Amino acid sequence: MIMRFIKKVPAGMMIVPMLIASLINTFIPQIVQIGSFTTAVFTSAGAATAIGIQLFCLGTTLQFKEMPKVFKRGGILLLSKFAIGAAIGIGIGKMFGMAGVLGLTTLSVISAVTNSNGSVYLSLMNEYGDETDAAAMALLALNDGPFLTLIALGASGLANIPFIALVAAVVPIVVGMILGNIDQELKNFLAPAGTILIPFVGFALGAGINITNIVKGGPQGILLGLICTFLGGIFIVFCDRFIGGRPGYAAWAVSTTAGNAVAVPAAVALIDPAWQAYVGTATTQVAAATVVTALLVPFITDWWAKKYGCPKYPLKGQEFKSQKLAEQKA
């Protein structure tokens, strides 16, 4: 009964646990703050570990012979997501300064629009995409944190780029990829864990979200979520369709704001203290955008996939070389 309900919700394996955890964190956080394994599993304390293990296991699915296809598909999504976020954020910064416009700070715009929720993307790709779509999540993990935000700020001359952040983000993926290519049996053993961990990652990320942040972020936070979803999403879909030749469902799936992005403003201020005065406002706005995009994007992706085709819902004349689709037909 529970699984049937979850399957009816787009990206339900990620969204449902995330919403439950956010409700707990908002109203009764003390019930999971009792220490030991309970706190490790059911709070945001375990988010980084869960995501790291997930990336490692996904890395084992990246076979060297498939890398050109993964880099092409994931690279278009990654670069277009970064390009639109950097363009909007730097444009606002150059014209209006750090304080931004319409109550949206430059820091919150760049932090939200350049980051995407990899777990929501993976959950959606497991439902609508194919193996290459799912494998691209390992590449897209580069924008789930402060690195690309810092590159955007660095491009405008406002922050330095910490190379170690890139290294830290890709080590689990690279190690998993090496082991998965060395030993096929090891790959077969570890690969399913990337999917199994989705609800745990969703819960851990949700445990770091306070629903009242939508109120604290105000209309600016909601506006930021809409900018990320629609303004960012339309550009990414354009690139996915006309450069990548894809239907566009994966582009919508990446049009979110990462849960980790909530910590990006503070991370930026640690490197460039000039941003410190804007951290509080930016954090609440990004938190609101995280919730808004997590709620909107799965339903938009579902509608788009059914209208324009995907491995699960191919249109007449469309062909998707997907093992998943073959298994569904069998």
Rank of each mutant, 00 (worst) to 15 (best):
L79N: 08
A83K: 11
A83I: 14
T61E: 09
L58K: 05
K65W: 00
I84W: 02
K65I: 00
R73S: 15
Q63H: 08
F64I: 11
T61W: 01
K72C: 10
T60C: 11
K81A: 15
E66R: 12
G59W: 00
F64R: 13
E66A: 14
A83L: 15
G74H: 11
G74Y: 12
A83F: 14
F56K: 01
M67G: 02
K69M: 13
R73C: 08
L55Q: 05
T60M: 06
M67Q: 08
V70G: 01
E66I: 03
L62P: 02
G75R: 05
L55C: 07
L78K: 06
G74E: 12
K81Q: 15
L78F: 11
P68G: 09
V70W: 03
G75Y: 09
G59V: 00
F56L: 14
S80K: 01
F56P: 06
I76S: 01
E66S: 14
M67R: 07
G85E: 03
L58W: 04
F71A: 11
L58F: 10
I84M: 07
F64P: 02
I76M: 03
L62V: 12
F82H: 08
I84Y: 03
F82Q: 09
K65V: 01
S80D: 11
G74C: 13
F82I: 09
V70A: 03
K72E: 11
G75K: 04
F64Q: 10
M67Y: 06
F82K: 06
G75E: 08
G75N: 04
L78G: 07
V70R: 01
L78P: 04
G59K: 00
F64A: 12
T61A: 11
T60I: 05
G74L: 12
A83Y: 13
C57Q: 06
S80Q: 03
G59R: 00
I76F: 01
S80A: 12
K72M: 14
M67L: 15
M67F: 12
K81R: 11
F56C: 10
M67P: 01
F64H: 10
M67C: 06
M67T: 11
R73Y: 12
F82C: 11
F64W: 13
L55N: 08
S80I: 02
V70M: 10
I84F: 04
K65Q: 07
E66Q: 15
Q63Y: 03
V70Y: 04
G74V: 12
Q63K: 13
L79T: 10
L77R: 00
F56V: 09
G85I: 04
E66G: 09
T61I: 05
G75M: 08
I84A: 06
A83C: 15
G74W: 12
K81E: 13
T60D: 11
R73E: 15
G75C: 06
G59H: 00
